[in-house]
């Protein structure tokens, strides 16, 4: 009965909820309920992030997706004529169901067949030892230290833990500086663009 057990249980339950919620989102006739289902899925995905040691991303997911995006979508829903029975199927429903399930199986096949450079799939003991034995820790001055771990038999601790907001921040302004600026540019242009669109509407 290790911590791993709880994590696994949580993972399976939450995955199940995610898939269930996703199905509800795409099948619900009531769009508002669909939107609420969507925010439920977002929260569950955030829990998955917490399980994956990505606390920062999980919190951002809640902050942006649940706090802003799904609220905005719920907002947009109120502009639909008949919310309760508004979400209709197109004529490609069956075809698309077939396409999507086919794509799903192709993706699963590929993910199973590909040899990921994964912690689980590394068979060379030496390589694994070289990796497993170290973990990353923030020092007091803020830089990242590499420490040799003494006991790392626990399954939970397997993996690369460079798990800090600080290192996400430092990679954002070093290796991903240009993407970051592009994102900023996209955000500002989206802001201006949506304002322009709304303004046109108000002029009429």
């Amino acid at each position: 009965m290790s911590g791993n057990f709880f994590i696994d249980i949580t993972f399976w339950v939450v995955s199940f909820l995610i898939i269930l919620g996703s199905f509800y989102v795409v099948t619900a006739r009531n769009i508002f309920r669909g939107a609420i289902g969507l925010s439920f899925v977002f929260i569950c995905v955030a829990i998955i992030f917490f399980l994956l040691n990505a606390e920062f991303l999980g919190v951002v997911q809640i902050l942006v997706y649940v706090g802003a995006v799904s609220v905005l979508i719920a907002f947009a829903v109120m502009f639909i004529k008949d919310v309760v029975d508004g979400s209709k199927y197109s004529k490609y429903r069956l075809l698309s169901a077939f396409l999507c399930s086919f794509l799903f199986f192709v993706l699963i096949f590929i993910s199973q067949v590909t040899e990921w450079n994964s912690m689980d799939s590394i068979e060379n003991e030496d390589a694994l030892a070289g990796l497993e034995g170290f973990y990353f820790e923030e020092s007091e001055s803020g830089s990242i230290l590499i420490k040799k771990a003494e006991v790392l038999s626990d399954g939970v601790n397997k993996g690369v833990f460079i798990n800090s907001t600080l290192s996400i921040g430092s990679s954002l302004i070093s290796n991903f500086l240009i993407p970051l600026q592009v994102i900023g540019f996209i955000l500002i242009s989206a802001l201006i663009g949506s304002l322009t669109i709304i303004r046109q509407r108000r002029k009429q």
Binding site: G34, A35, G86, Y89, S96, L99, C100, L107
Partner: peptide, 23 residues
Amino acid sequence: LILSAAVFCIGLYGILSKTNIVS
């Protein structure tokens, strides 16, 4: 990865099958 593929494909199904733009 299976979870991610499932969520992705369900979303795709939603795009292809629903006509409401909010959906």
